[in-house]
Structures are given as structure tokens and as C-alpha cells.
């Protein structure tokens, strides 16, 4: 179990959230939802150590998460990457082995085999030699998921993986996430599409500058929490019809 306690993050004295406590379970796909600017990405970046936190601890199985740094795979939002970079699909996927290899060791036959297999799992083996700029958004996202497969991580964190991608890619990625779940891994997904919440996730974290609620989707995905995180209007659109039907 990944447990976060007392986590406070502020940018230049403006707090994003304070004293956050939340847990993520093994063998579950946990969605993090909340309006824009709720601090979803900041939460996962703080867990990853990419942004400084003013206080707080992250523990995995009772040990500091820092000890498991190489066991965490991060699939970030793709917006900042240079897609003209001279790197092909195979090499990009193979970079998933770099952390494990450490300095002065290059990927060998075993790593190349793992890379090929990961690309096959996301259905992109035929694209191995293609420069990454010649992929669709969905294909590129699948490459990053393939890299996470190669990384053989126990905790996989994805930031808005389904934004701007085709349905085929979304299905392929969801299939991998479920596979990971069945292997007992911890999967965390920052997500914005509320319609798919109950279909995609086992657990849910509802955020708005702090945790509003977290737990199994059935218990947490309700009108009260959505109203609190987003708005009464949205909540009524999403839930009223359903509740009336009940």
C-alpha cells in the first residue's frame, strides 16, 4: 500500500493543498479526479519528488517511498516533449530499462527482447523503427505505456493518459492497466472524464485543493462529493437521473 500523510505543497506561499492524507492500494486502479487547478498533477508530482513539498511523507509497505524510486513508472502529459527529437519508437521504449541498468551499462539482448515484447503488448511492434514525430497522439501514448511495461515498476502513475487520443489507443492502454492490476501493482491515474469513472477505476480520489474523499468507487463517486469538488450543476447532471431511476 502506498500511504501519503500530512502532505503540504505550496508554490511561492500560495498553498495548493495542505495536510493531505490518502492511500493507494495494490491491485487497484485508482483514479484521481477534480476540477482544473485542483492540485491533481501536483499531488502526483509531489509523490514522485518532482515538486518540493513543505511537509509530508510517502511510504510504500511501511518504508519510505524513496527506497522504491526505480519501482515507480511515470507516464506524464505529453505536451512538453520535442517530437522532432531524433529518437525512434524502439529506443524510446528501451529508455524504460535505463533506471534499472544504472550508469555505464547499456541495454543488451535481454533488454531489447523486453522492449520488443512491450511494443507487441501495446500493438506497436511494426512501428519500432518509426521516428516518434510520425505517430498519432494515441500511438505515442501507447509507446509511453510500453516504456512503463519495460520498466517493470510496481507503482505506475499516469497523468491524463486519455487526453486527445483515439479509442483504439484508449482501449489498448486500459487493457494494460487491467493487466497490471491483476498482477497486484498499484496504478494511479489522473483523469478528467467523469463519464468513465465507474467503468475504469476500482478506487477513486476526489480532489479540490485537498482530498474531499477517497475509497472504492461505489462509495466515493456520489453526488455529494462531485458537488463539493466541481459544482452542484454538474452533480445534478451526472447523478439526478440515476438516483431518480433508483
Amino acid at each position: 500500500m502506498l500511504a501519503i500523510t500530512d502532505l503540504t505543497v505550496a508554490y511561492d506561499d500560495t498553498p495548493v493543498f495542505a495536510d493531505v492524507a490518502v492511500t493507494f492500494n495494490k491491485g487497484k486502479i485508482t483514479g484521481i479526479i477534480g476540477p482544473n487547478g485542483a492540485g491533481k498533477s501536483t499531488l502526483i508530482k509531489a509523490i514522485l519528488g518532482l515538486v518540493k513539498s513543505q511537509s509530508g511523507a510517502a511510504e510504500y509497505d511501511g518504508e519510505p517511498l524513496k527506497h522504491f524510486q526505480k519501482q515507480i513508472a511515470y507516464v506524464e502529459q505529453r505536451k512538453d516533449l520535442d517530437l522532432t527529437f531524433p529518437v525512434d519508437v524502439f529506443t524510446l521504449t528501451e529508455t524504460g530499462t535505463y533506471g534499472r541498468l544504472g550508469l555505464f551499462r547499456n541495454p543488451g539482448k535481454k533488454e531489447q527482447e523486453e522492449t520488443r515484447s512491450a511494443l507487441a503488448q501495446v500493438g506497436l511492434e511494426e512501428y519500432a523503427q518509426r521516428q516518434i514525430g510520425n505517430l498519432s497522439g494515441g500511438q505515442l501514448q501507447r509507446v509511453f505505456v510500453a516504456r512503463a511495461i519495460v520498466q517493470q515498476a510496481e507503482i505506475i502513475i499516469l497523468d491524463e493518459p486519455f487526453v486527445g487520443i483515439d479509442l483504439q489507443s484508449e482501449t489498448a492502454i486500459m487493457k494494460i492497466l487491467k493487466q497490471w492490476r491483476d498482477e497486484g501493482k498499484t496504478i494511479i491515474v489522473v483523469h478528467h472524464d467523469l463519464n468513465k469513472v465507474s467503468r475504469y477505476f476500482d478506487d477513486l480520489v476526489v480532489m479540490n485543493h485537498g482530498i474531499i474523499d477517497y475509497g472504492p468507487v461505489q462509495a466515493v463517486y456520489n453526488s455529494k462529493n462531485i458537488e463539493q469538488a466541481f459544482s452542484a450543476d454538474l452533480s445534478s447532471v451526472l447523478f439526478t437521473a440515476k438516483e431518480v431511476a433508483h
Binding site: G49, L50, Q69
Partner: peptide, 22 residues
Amino acid sequence: VAFYKELLITSFDATYAQTYGL
């Protein structure tokens, strides 16, 4: 030669390199 793969990954995706502890 010694840092080829580190130079590659930090030039393309420095955030990722940071997450695995480079």
C-alpha cells in the same frame, strides 16, 4: 560514449530521468 544513454534521455525527457533517480 560513457554517458550516451543518460545524454539521450535527459536531452529528450529530463523529467523521466529524474523520476528514476538520475
